[in-house]
Design a protein around this nucleic acid. Structure first.
Lengths: 334, 334
DNA sequence: TTTGATTGCTAAAATGTTTTAATTATCTTT
DNA sequence: AAAGATAATTAAAACATTTTAGCAATCAAA
């Protein structure tokens, strides 16, 4: 458990000042700096000594002085949800490439948790945040932005909040889904959504409603709403209801809903799933193995993650004023 | 973007020294302290002022001085793998309850990545690590332990390394799996495993081999090995090979292998999956919807996560010498 | 050879805490 | 009222960096 070697130890051994060592340690990369240069010989020697003493900078001291931590916080709805886990992985990879390390936190769609997790991250001095905002999180997000902390919203925006944002083109995605079902001959297409008021979900409804109206099927359009916290309790009734009324096409607005829904369909009719065509958001292993085909809107997970990180780092390093909104295109997969 | 309020600002406003404020901020909880007390009146006033100034301690300064960050690092194989994502979520929850925040990192089973991720975490001053060790990671793990950094191994141990460890009883789990298949009438049971040399995988082989030998079926026992990095390339051949030789029971040693395997079976024979009974490790949505039943060994995810955190925090706070190994019981689910 | 610029380096302040040792204030006893 | 004990508070050092301002030394030009 050898004592930690500091910049001072190196300075002593090299017979120079700590300032010099600090310059070498940092300017190394941006070696073009006019001011504060160090001769190649000294630089070399210091580097050498640092290496053989196995020097590792103390990041607490570093960030106390510099105010930066090279750390970002990522707040999603639930890290164990495959969709967010995939994104998380992607964020991790891209962030690491830029020497950033990531904190992860889950909100379970609760604004209080969101606030709490974000507070924790800020207290630990993160340089920026990537957040999947939940219902009623406008206040929290605003506060972060007002505090001058770089933030990127992911998966959904928040009405009335100006900040970088990376989302799917949800309107279009839902429109594609509806069109797809109708093209395949569906006559009665309905949607199953959450009760939650989230931008992405509202957009999906809008996209669905739009297509239905366009095709003169506005009358038969219907959206069922299930509580986020009680999917297993409510889904069976919703599914039964739809089947009893002869629905032949269903759009589930999230991967969780889709899975729950298909399970219900399967319970009722394992062979034909009630003869209903189904489209969902986000993929899952078992789609290919269902007795009836399940189509789904593929989320460009890698892009969602990498774009979010890109925007955030950009924001951290350049402190720009202009916000940008990245809207990604969905891909429908059969 | 209000300037950050410090302990000094509070001291000034309250007309006391920074030391007093510091005492109040920390001893608050452990209020029974003999030494360094501050009168209830002053305490009250300081707390009041701190609250109305919305004081938030600077954690960089805190950890520079105290050497602690209230942060732990979690290194898994792949955070986007549902198994690890579930554990991660669990770790997050338990850690947050104790006011710890977590860094996450993935290794993709590469020792170099493991080293790199761990270095990054240590540089950021984590108080401890929860690690899923990969092949050839003994050196890295040893170094961490030698540096006096609390560490808990998760999901698998490392031979010859003494440290806290939380695992499934893999031997037993595999034995249960084999027994299960045989009880259901399987005559020719084989196993599909990775080529990797990991403790948990070896134990699963041992459990399988043990049961087979015990039942006088040692002759017919056979383990197929697939490279971690080339599952889709190798699985089809393995599955075909097994089917052609009349295998009627298969044990897949990981959830990824299981899913890949079942997909292959499905591709060959969507209805009966080749009439083969299958057991795997870890659950997935679609098991209930397969034409033939897939059984699986349920991993006690919540316990894996919470026990790991418990051991780690214990280690961080008490610096004990004695290492403990928690071995959890598997549950077979049909 | 003086002047002015450039190069290479350093001393010291600053960052926001915690903690030690010391000091002052307030009580009890006598 | 003095002495001793105890309670309340503080000054200052320490933690490991970064960065500002400035000092020598060397070099180029006049």
């Amino acid at each position: 458990m050898s004592k930690k070697v500091t910049i001072r130890d190196i300075a002593d051994k090299a017979g120079v000042s700590v300032a010099t060592v600090s310059f070498v340690m940092n300017n190394q990369a941006s070696s073009g700096s006019e001011r504060y240069r160090v001769s190649p010989k000294t630089t070399e020697r210091i580097l050498q000594i640092a290496a053989e003493m196995n020097y590792r900078p103390n990041s607490a001291a570093k960030s106390l002085r510099s105010g930066r931590t090279n750390t970002i916080g990522v707040v999603v709805s639930d890290i164990s949800n495959k969709f967010f886990a995939d994104i998380a992985r992607c964020i991790e990879d891209v962030a690491y490439q830029s020497n950033y390390t990531v904190f992860f936190g889950s909100t379970d769609e609760s604004p209080e948790k969101l606030q709490h997790v974000i507070d924790g991250f800020i207290d630990r001095g993160i340089d920026g945040l990537i957040v999947v905002p939940c219902e009623n999180s406008k206040g929290t997000i605003r506060k972060v932005l007002d505090a001058g902390i770089p933030l990127v919203m992911l998966d959904r925006g928040v009405d009335g909040v100006e900040a970088d944002c990376v989302t799917l083109n949800n309107r279009r995605a839902a429109a594609m889904a509806a069109q797809h079902l109708i093209d395949r001959g569906a006559r009665k297409v309905e949607m199953v959504n959450y009760t939650m008021n989230l931008q992405n979900l509202r957009d999906r409804e809008a996209g669905y409603a739009g297509v239905m109206a366009e095709l003169g099927m506005g009358e038969s359009a219907k959206v069922h709403r299930v509580r986020f916290r009680n999917i297993p309790g409510q889904m069976p009734r919703v599914v039964e209801d739809m089947l009893s009324r002869g629905v032949d096409g269903i759009i589930f607005t999230t991967n969780k809903l889709l899975r729950a829904g298909v399970h219900c369909l399967y319970d009722i009719d394992p062979v034909s799933l009630g003869g209903v065509r189904v489209v969902g958001f986000g993929e899952s292993d078992f789609f290919g193995m269902c007795s009836l085909p399940v189509s789904y809107v593929k989320q460009p997970v890698e892009l969602l993650g990498s774009e979010a990180v890109r925007l955030l780092l950009d924001n951290i390093n350049n402190r720009k004023q202009q916000f940008v909104s990245v809207v990604l295109n969905p891909i429908l997969t059969e």
